[in-house]
Design a protein around this nucleic acid. Structure first.
Lengths: 297, 297
DNA sequence: AGACATCCATAACATAAAGTTATGGAGTTA
DNA sequence: TAACTCCATAACTTTATGTTATGGATGTCT
């Protein structure tokens, strides 16, 4: 059987031109190299060197083989390098599934920030509906999923994050001057709301009802980003997640605290039966930290 | 230090899905694999499997690494394959330097025949003047050289081969009916001859002089192949090597034995201080056998 | 020529890697 | 609960890989 050590010795001799120097290169004794070389010739059944005048001269076969051997050894050394990188979380691959709304706001920034000092890390980001995200996580197709309206799944663990929401207005809106916006302020005013049936819509509706205010839906949208743009154009006021609001704030959109504070619940999903890599743990930590400024309490 | 054996065990477990099957695959005992895996995890500093419910489940890192490891092991196995091929002279590389005249006649056929049942053998053929061939062989740039007019060199060993020469005529030539051609038959007839100064030219001249015949040079050429074409066209008779003559015989060129028989000396050159590979030895044998039909005595 | 250094091979021995059998715990299945 | 599968650990053997000591062959420098 050809041993790796024999090939390393062979390579060292070819590189240095002699057994003695090769031994120095490998930090072992000269007889050790001598033996490795002769045992390699033995097992290969091919003379690799000619012993002439007390020196080694590589045969044609040796010169033919060295290229392949060099490549093989290099690829083994590459593995050592790779494990080093993995240990330092400098290499690896993450698969993320997230909501369309999220994929265009916070996620790119988080991913970009995370990859900045992790050159060899690769990622795939898929945008899917909450239901799809849930299924794909359960099937272990992705390492982390971001969903809303999560209702639980046998093979999925989740943690919820309550995102702070704010009222978004155009600068021309009558309430633009107010520090804080309440349902009664918005009573009877046209508003951009989430799809009816959406859980967050019901939260808003409840808040209005509790305050005895009248909710006037003008436009129904799916994504907070759309709501922000419409609000900016003066179509109406909107209660949106602070994440999306931050995207458009300072670009012609006014945001004001909304009271009572309504949490927009976001769920982070993980496959239950798939061990978390060090890199994934790092990413989760980084992601949660990035969410921090937008969370409630 | 990461050991090759550990990687092999790891690969086997990833392939088979379990320690026990991996042990079968490697023809070793189950505890051996167990130990290799855990020592690999130890040295890498990365958990590669999760032990859950008495089974091994590969971690994300394991799945990330297996690709590279697979590649590395494959390239090592390739080396074993390669040495096998070299032992059977099925692989290797030969570098040939030869005369232009030779490179277009016998050499391509010899090379093609030699390569026919040696799929993985590669060759490079360079055509150079005799003087260049000599220098390149001395510099160990080539494994075998074919030259004429070789005068010796410190770092070159050579063996001479005497090639039979024949008289080439067009079918319309007055001597076409003769079985054997002698100098006196050609006396006063236009002939195609080698460059004056060439050693073979002097041989021909000497033969004519000895027979008291008059040599009438019509065209001087360097290569026998050119002489053959000219002779075929009826420009004159030519004394050419039987190798080149064979190329054109049956394609409108008549060849007749020439007496006295004039040897065209060809030299096979080898670098003196470079060991001959098994493949080279095979090639030399094959080459000399191919020359056999054309040699004198 | 003789002294000296260089280079490689061999012998005798030490240590680490890689394999063995024996055994047992945890989980699955009948 | 008994039988079975799967993996880990312990104790031990064999093989690889290394060591130091030694010597022969070659080249170099007086």
């Amino acid at each position: 059987m050809i041993r790796l050590r024999q090939l390393e010795a062979f390579r060292a001799v070819m590189l240095t031109g002699g057994v003695t120097q090769a031994a120095h290169m490998l930090h072992i004794s000269q007889p050790a190299v001598s033996k490795l070389i002769s045992s390699l010739e033995q097992t290969m059944g091919i003379p690799l060197f000619e012993r002439r005048q007390g020196r080694l001269h590589p045969t044609h076969e040796a010169e033919f083989l060295i290229g392949e051997i060099d490549r093989a050894i290099a690829s083994l050394e590459h593995i050592a390098q790779l494990t080093e990188d993995i240990r330092n979380q400098k290499a690896g691959h993450l698969r993320i599934a997230c909501l369309p709304g999220f994929a265009t706001s916070l996620m790119p920034e988080v991913v970009a920030g995370f990859l900045a000092d992790r050159e060899k890390v690769t990622m795939s980001i898929q945008t899917r509906s909450s239901a799809r995200v849930r299924e794909w996580i359960a099937a272990q197709q992705y390492d982390i999923g971001v969903a809303d309206e999560f209702e639980g799944h046998r093979a999925v663990i989740h943690e919820s994050v309550n995102i702070r929401t704010v009222c978004a207005l155009s600068p021309q809106h009558p309430l633009a001057a107010q520090k804080v916006i309440r349902p009664e302020d918005l009573s009877g005013m046209p508003m951009i709301i989430q799809d009816r049936g959406n859980r967050f819509y019901h939260l808003v509706k409840q808040a209005f009802d509790d305050a005895g205010a009248i909710l006037v839906p003008r436009v129904e949208v799916r994504q907070f980003a759309t709501a922000c743009i419409l609000a900016k154009k003066g179509v109406g006021a909107a209660i949106v997640s602070s994440i999306d609001a931050a995207e458009y704030a300072g670009r012609g959109l006014i945001t004001r605290p909304f009271e009572p504070s309504l949490p927009f619940r976001l769920d982070l999903l993980y496959p239950k039966y798939h061990p978390r890599s060090l890199l994934l743990q790092e990413f989760i930590k980084y992601f949660r930290e990035s969410l921090q400024p937008f969370t409630l309490s």
